[in-house]
Write a protein that binds this DNA or RNA. Structure first.
Lengths: 239, 239
DNA sequence: CTTCATTTTTGGTATAGACCAGAAGGGCGG
DNA sequence: CCGCCCTTCTGGTCTATACCAAAAATGAAG
């Protein structure tokens, strides 16, 4: 798989990357349109797009559907072992976090959820869907499930902040253990729509299960992140 | 960004995905060629490729340059907080790990490495480049740097196994702390070539810094993973 | 000023055709 | 049997064109 350095789209890619690295185009700024990038220099739009796709995979640029290509802001650093919640760690990095609650409903425990929570199928659960943004750009959508028996009337509390602190202050439920799974994925229909990206774009699937001191599942959370919005950082002392 | 379900390439994608999910095509098996997938049903090769790219992003299939598309094997689970080394945790999952040493050289400490190791620029260091595979498929390339003063004559030891255990048994150096950073990236020229993938494909960049009990940097390791080869899993007790 | 409808621009999808370099396979000669 | 060459197949790149739907810009009307 040797590469001859002479591929057309790689040249286009590097030219654009240079303009970004050189500060000519700043984070959040819009790139010239694909047709403008052709300039007339005998390059097909498909070739321009190939270059843009590469930069997108690198996290250098992102797109808004039918609006244009934009320079990506720096990613948020996330340490799964330190659990302060989205709002505080984004703020700690000098960024502006926001949360929107997309829906909150009471559901019946499904066959998938039952073994996770150790509760019978049909038991009442709360499901909360939220979208979280950094500096106005949506970076993740999440679906949280909580056992209704542990936190009755949860949905009447404010849900646009830290759910963990609501559970602690209103129900005296403390998280003692966290299990986090992460895997690259493609964003499908539902998540892509909520993140306002094209379906099929790469993303990161983060599944977090929180347990209390008795080992009961407090919170089951599935998050879909934009692949370019996150940087994972873990610092551990070996026992 | 509503999507009308009627897009041609999504239909093609789902048809192929169904054949894989249905067991007609098994992990490691080769898909029919792009031109064969056109069948004559009035679909352009570009549309077929669009569908294949999506499945690739999802980790369902992967490609070998100019050879064909293949069904992906399941990913390896990796827990950055548990540090047994590549060989043992891959084996523990019933897979066959292999390591090749691509190069091993003594280098002078660079301006980038100097502050990491707390050593002057020009100090002798060892640099080891390795490629690691699972069941015969290359999944990562890594570049390890070790301070030569801490592990004199390191390069004469066998390097195709666990480096950590070599450091421990031969030099009595134990890792007390690990720092791991992970970020989605695009695989560039060098890594892509070593992994035998096309340059620009998405990957995961893992940077691990290991410290001993005195806080000295024992090992600085930069890994580039295929994006579809890895699943990250962390389990932590909250203090 | 705001509001609403229209036009323009933009990226998204799709077709068709072309050529290339590398992989794979077959056959030939040793 | 092995090794080498040549052909075939395959994905990789690129051009050119076309049409669509959504976003953005524009302009008219209130």
């Amino acid at each position: 798989m040797t590469q001859p350095d002479s591929l057309h789209y790689l040249g286009v890619r590097d030219a654009i990357a240079a303009r970004i690295a050189g500060g000519e185009l700043k984070p959040g700024e819009r790139l010239p349109s694909e047709r403008q990038l052709q300039v007339g220099g005998g390059v097909a739009r498909g070739t321009i797009r190939e270059a843009l796709f590469q930069l997108e995979a690198e996290g250098v640029i992102y797109r808004k559907d039918r609006s244009g290509w934009y320079v990506s802001p720096p990613p948020v650093v996330y340490d799964p072992t330190r659990w302060e919640g989205f709002m505080s760690y984004v703020e700690a990095q000098g960024r502006r976090p926001t949360t929107e609650t997309l829906s909150k409903t009471e559901i019946a425990c499904t066959p998938v959820l039952a073994p996770i929570f150790g509760r019978p199928v049909g038991a009442p659960m709360y499901r909360i869907r939220r979208r979280r943004s950094v500096d106005g750009r949506a970076v993740l959508v999440e679906t949280i499930v909580v056992d209704a028996a542990m936190a009755p009337d949860l949905l009447s509390h404010p849900l646009d902040g830290s759910l963990t602190s609501v559970l602690k202050s209103a129900y005296n439920i403390a998280v003692a253990r966290n299990r986090v799974d992460m895997q690259p994925c493609a964003l499908t229909r539902g998540e892509a729509e909520a993140l306002q990206v094209k379906s099929g774009l790469p993303g990161l699937n983060v599944v977090r299960t929180s347990y209390d001191a008795q080992g009961r599942v407090v919170e089951f959370d599935r998050e879909y992140w934009r692949h370019d919005a996150l940087k994972i950082s873990v610092d551990i002392r070996v026992r």
